[in-house]
Design a protein around this nucleic acid. Structure first.
Lengths: 201, 201
DNA sequence: TGCATTATGTATCGATCATTACATAAAAGG
DNA sequence: CCTTTTATGTAATGATCGATACATAATGCA
């Protein structure tokens, strides 16, 4: 079944990619409709017809970001042989992504919308939930480490997960402030220096 | 010499304090003039006459924040007997401040203006410089630790300073996401677990 | 060839943004 | 008293915000 009416004259995926870049660089609130339509090379009515609203577009942009950028970072966790190696690579991939020269520095999920109101279904709460999901993701990898004998059952896994996610959050700010890959790599390694102390409790 | 014209009908310091609270909670861009004048209980012309502009008011609010909130945190560094204790208290005071129930969670300098343009003399660059100053501050305390024999001269002090500042940055995000004092305290202790590994290089 | 449907471009909507004109009010100095 | 100076409240400025009305263009289907 083909479309009934006049066909869309632009590539929806490419336009969404452009929009993600704008939101990533400027954040939800600072990214104006004028910024978005200019980058997407479409007019406002086309944007609304294809994506619904600015907030809806942002939601799709965040999903694209998770699929495209976040997946490489989060993939470190299940792929590594140990939880320690997984988290080390998790931070290392974060350092690489956050200083990539062809991308805005820092994480879109961390920096994208910090000051929206606290109601649900806002860009702010959407990102907050994504960040909290990351804690759960790290914790799950740590739990696997416990099951596989790498980590003692007495260790406070929530604390460890929150620590490393907090480091990752901080890397977004530091990256925006101009840190290089070398600097963030050292920070990632510094965080891993705490590992032995954290799992020997 | 007293004032010549009609005296100001409001307390400038109290109004600035209110403005700081608004900027702290909402950030520079999300804090509208309507928000500010409502909280300060003055009209826009009074605000402009007393503070110049929204950006100037923000600058003064940041200075007030540094003097009032930041001073307690940064004071940890020179007061402690060792660099290790100083940084540990630095993170601990950060955890306390960032979860204080009568304050917005997280740091105004970290969260206050992330997405302004990169030109100079903007709220965004103003805060970035403040954050970079914090790295210098930690590094200076570490250098003192070297002079006093606490830390070997071969240690990469810049790396250590950047790591702990990055953790502090992350604590602002985590605090905004709802972390408790207990959680942030654990994160601060976790960061200190890396200390021995960092200064034995 | 019409008809229904969807997309596009232009032009604009009311709301809100930071900022300010303007008339008035309250003080000091003459 | 009068003048000068500064502050205040009201109301408005042009600019920009996100979102749309509307006429037109391009498709599938009858």
């Amino acid at each position: 079944m083909t479309a009934k009416g006049r066909p869309r004259a632009f590539d929806r995926d490419a336009a969404l990619e452009r929009a993600m870049q704008v939101f990533w660089k400027k954040g939800y609130e600072s990214a104006s409709m004028a910024d978005l339509t200019a980058a997407m090379e479409i007019n406002a009515p086309s944007l609304y017809a294809a994506f619904g609203s600015k907030a809806d577009l942002f939601k799709e942009a965040v999903e694209l970001y998770s699929d495209k950028v976040g997946k490489r970072i989060k993939g470190s966790l299940p792929n590594a042989a140990t939880a320690k190696e997984g988290i080390a690579d998790f931070l290392m991939q974060t350092a690489i992504s956050h200083t990539s020269p062809d991308q805005p520095h820092g994480c879109m999920v961390v920096l994208g919308a910090l000051h929206g109101n606290d109601s649900s279904d806002t860009p702010c709460s959407l990102l907050r939930e994504r960040r909290l999901d990351n804690v759960t993701l790290l914790r799950a990898r740590l739990e696997r480490g416990v099951r596989e004998g790498e980590i003692a059952a007495s260790v406070d896994l929530q604390q460890v997960a929150e620590f490393y996610v907090t480091v990752q959050h901080g890397m977004s700010i530091t990256a925006r402030d101009g840190a290089t890959l070398e600097q963030l790599t050292k920070t990632a390694r510094a965080a891993m220096a705490a590992w032995d102390g954290l799992i020997s409790e």
